[in-house]
Structures are given as C-alpha cells and as structure tokens.
Amino acid sequence: MFECRLPKAEVLKKTMDALKDLIKEAVWDVSAQGLSLQSMDSSHVSLVQVTLRTEGFDTFRCDKNIALGVNMDTMQKLMKCASNDDNITLKSEDNGDLLSLIFESPNGEKTSEYEMKLMDLDIEQLGIPDQEYSCTIKMPSGEFQRICRDLSNIGESVNITVVKGGVDFSAKGDIGNAKIHVTESSNVDNEKDAVTVEVNEPVNLTFALRYLNFFTKATPLSGQVSLSISPDVPLVVAYEIEDLGHVKYFLAPKIEN
C-alpha cells in the first residue's frame, strides 16, 4: 500500500493550484523516492514536472510503485476542503481504485476523510535531459508574475533578452510596445528579493505569455523563481518547494517560420 503524511495541507493545496489550470488529468507516480507527476498541457505546447521527495514528508510508505490517475479539478476541489494548517494523509491500496485524503486539524479535534475515484490514464511521458543552460535568471516570483501579467496587456508573446547584468522582457502588439528591464541586484539583504543573472552566452527567445501566466499560478509556492534559457530549446520556469521538491514548467519557444 501507499500512505504518506504532510504536516501542513497548505503546500499540497498550493501545488494543486499551480497545476489545475494547465492540465485536466494527470498521473501521480508513487515510488520509494516520493511522488512525481509529468504532463503536457492539452495543446502540447508546455510540460509540467513535479517532484515531492520522500524526505519532505512526516511519514512515507510505498510498498510497490503505483500510478494514481487523477482528475486535477476533482483533486483540487477536495484539497480545498482542508484547512491550510491541517495535516494531511494520502492513502491508496496497491490495486485500489480510490485515493483517500484525510485531513486532521492541528488540535486533533476534527478529522475529515474524503475518497476520490482514481482513473486509468495512459499519459505520454517524455524524457527530459539534464542540460546546461546558456542563461539562468533568479528573481522574486511575484515580480515575474507581475511582468507576465503586465505584458499580456500589450501582446501575446514576450521576447526575453538576457545579457550580462540584466534581462529585458518586451512585448509588441496592436496598441503599442512595452519593455521591462530588470537589473541584477548589486546588494541584497533578503535573498528572496534578489535578482541574479548568470550568463554563459547571451540569448534572445520568444515565448507565449498565455502559458507563462499559467505557470505563475505556482507563485505562492516559492518566493523565488528561476528561468533557465538556451537558444532553440524549451524555457524552464522552476519553483522550489522548501524541503519538499519543486514544480518545473517547460515551454517551447516560438520560432521563425
């Protein structure tokens, strides 16, 4: 059987919020390493990959690798029934067709148990190679969210140009143009407020803002976001979940016809 427990439901609620607008159905793969999920969005333009490592759970038992096929909307709805500071247990039998979600209030006076029907899903998996990127930008996640939202008012795409010391986000549209320049921080007291720009070679790529705006639903998971960019390969937008894992989004660049 599979059974795991997290001290706070909040982190799993935020993880579901980060996924449910992008993907409708997905498979949680459960192994001794933890929980993981990989899925393309319905138009196959982007890919999301989630890892929640065993070490981040209070308890984690997995007798046999299992795949939990879930409707994301349903799982998110059930997760919303947990209070942020409830502890949460997920449980499933090896050959079962149900996932139990048990929420316990911090004082132990209320326990809620929900059972969710699992689905038999055959979802295409892609091999994501480990690779070095030409540029890696780290910045406050709220700032990145704001930039994507603001540029959506101008155009459908953002052009990201990274040079030593800074990055330009620009958009063009029928009503006009916009350019937002973010400079690398020279001195920061709080790591969460820092902007760092690592450049091996300058890059200039264009991405659909529609998907970046979906990705920024993960903002509450982490104070910082990292953007890894290389010419002609998907952009990686990564949110670390403290002590537990990460949510990573991959977005194919727009290319010249």
Partner: peptide, 14 residues
C-alpha cells in the same frame, strides 16, 4: 511571423 512548435518535438518519448 513566428510559430509555436509542440513541446514534444524537443524531448524524446519514453
């Protein structure tokens, strides 16, 4: 004009 390729064209199917 630019076009939007599929993400699956960048990664190997497993």
């Amino acid at each position: 004009p630019k076009h939007q390729p599929s993400i699956s064209s960048f990664f190997m199917k497993t």
